[in-house]
Simulated scan of single mutants.
Amino acid sequence: MTIDILARNNVKVLGDGERTIVFAHGFGCDQDMWRYIVPGFASDYRVVLFDYVGSGRSQLQYYDAGKYNDLSGYAEDVNEIFDALGLRNAIFVGHSVSGMIGLLASIRDERRFGRIVMIGSSPRYVNDEPDYFGGFDAEEIQALLDMMEMNFIGWASYMAPIAMQNPDRSDLAEELERSFCSRDPHIARQFAEVTFLSDCRGELERAPVPALILQCDEDSIAPIEVGNYLHAHLKNSTLRLMNAKGHYPHLSHPEETASLIRQYLADA
């Protein structure tokens, strides 16, 4: 059976610039999360948006629990999207887990990638004593996964404000909670486990293209120690500390996020 890759991942292409910039959403989200960022880039770039299978308006019939039991399954889809669009030297902007998915995809086919921008990304969320601090003990991750399984709506209500970290902007936490709740609970639970138990530290040294690391202040999902670790282990990486708080600066502080990406690309 021939799969329509662009339909499977609900791929949207905007703008007509010479260079392509691909925006990849994080766990529990979809391409709509980039809506404040995209207009500023569509005038200068060819902008590509998509949803991972199981998210947004992707075609759920293609969800394969075996394939997506590892980040490599999502990286494979990214490469297929790049192939379907004939992309080369593209800029890949990945939020959260998508930073690592983009890294894995670039290792598979570096010709397609020119730069990677990682927003709040982490190579490993679980602490690994004594040398690595990812932000979570293994017991904390398991407790969150158990909560998702027992009370998915309750988990979403609990997690959204913690991840957003902008208490004066309750609308943002409410939007994130709605995004979480719109997912199939079983698919979301598996994606969460794959994300939070992943370990990409061993892949960092294989990164074939330069990377920009955008590190937010008070990010409860990817703390500053993670950003520093990425910068230390990714060759040709640039670390920028943001004024934005929380894990979703493209929603809470889109102007700063877009400005830092633009500055990086202008200097590249």
Rank of each mutant, 00 (worst) to 15 (best):
181 C>E: 11
91 I>V: 15
116 I>K: 09
211 A>W: 01
147 M>G: 05
83 D>H: 05
102 G>C: 10
87 L>P: 06
115 R>W: 11
113 F>C: 15
32 D>L: 01
130 P>H: 00
164 M>Q: 02
74 Y>W: 12
136 F>V: 07
266 A>S: 10
106 S>A: 15
236 N>D: 14
64 D>K: 09
128 D>W: 08
6 L>C: 13
90 A>C: 03
161 P>A: 12
35 R>I: 11
143 A>G: 02
165 Q>D: 06
93 V>Y: 09
174 E>H: 01
179 S>A: 14
201 R>L: 07
65 A>K: 13
268 A>H: 10
141 I>P: 09
175 E>D: 12
126 V>P: 01
194 V>W: 09
167 P>D: 06
9 N>F: 04
195 T>H: 11
101 I>E: 11
181 C>K: 14
150 M>W: 00
139 E>R: 04
236 N>G: 08
238 T>E: 14
202 G>K: 04
192 A>S: 13
138 A>W: 02
181 C>I: 13
205 E>T: 11
255 E>V: 14
222 A>Y: 00
195 T>R: 08
205 E>Y: 11
50 F>Q: 04
203 E>C: 06
51 D>N: 07
44 D>Q: 14
231 H>Y: 08
104 L>E: 11
228 N>Q: 13
134 G>T: 05
118 M>Q: 14
202 G>Y: 00
154 G>V: 05
153 I>N: 02
161 P>K: 12
221 I>M: 15
225 E>Q: 08
198 S>W: 05
7 A>C: 00
119 I>G: 01
106 S>R: 10
140 E>K: 01
159 M>K: 02
31 Q>D: 09
247 H>G: 07
199 D>K: 00
43 S>F: 03
228 N>H: 11
223 P>Y: 01
78 V>Q: 14
144 L>P: 00
42 A>E: 14
249 P>I: 11
228 N>P: 01
47 V>S: 07
189 R>D: 01
98 S>A: 11
194 V>Y: 10
58 S>M: 06
64 D>Y: 09
244 A>Q: 06
89 N>V: 06
192 A>K: 08
253 H>L: 00
7 A>K: 13
179 S>K: 13
48 V>H: 08
157 S>I: 07
13 V>A: 06
241 L>E: 04
124 R>C: 15
32 D>Q: 10
181 C>Y: 02
213 I>M: 03
134 G>R: 01
223 P>W: 00
210 P>I: 03
196 F>L: 12
233 H>G: 08
58 S>Q: 03
128 D>V: 12
59 Q>A: 02
110 E>D: 12
137 D>E: 05
83 D>G: 01
256 E>N: 05
67 K>F: 02
27 F>Y: 14
122 S>C: 12
71 L>R: 09
74 Y>F: 15
222 A>M: 03
80 E>C: 03
251 L>Q: 14
222 A>K: 11
62 Y>N: 04
236 N>E: 13
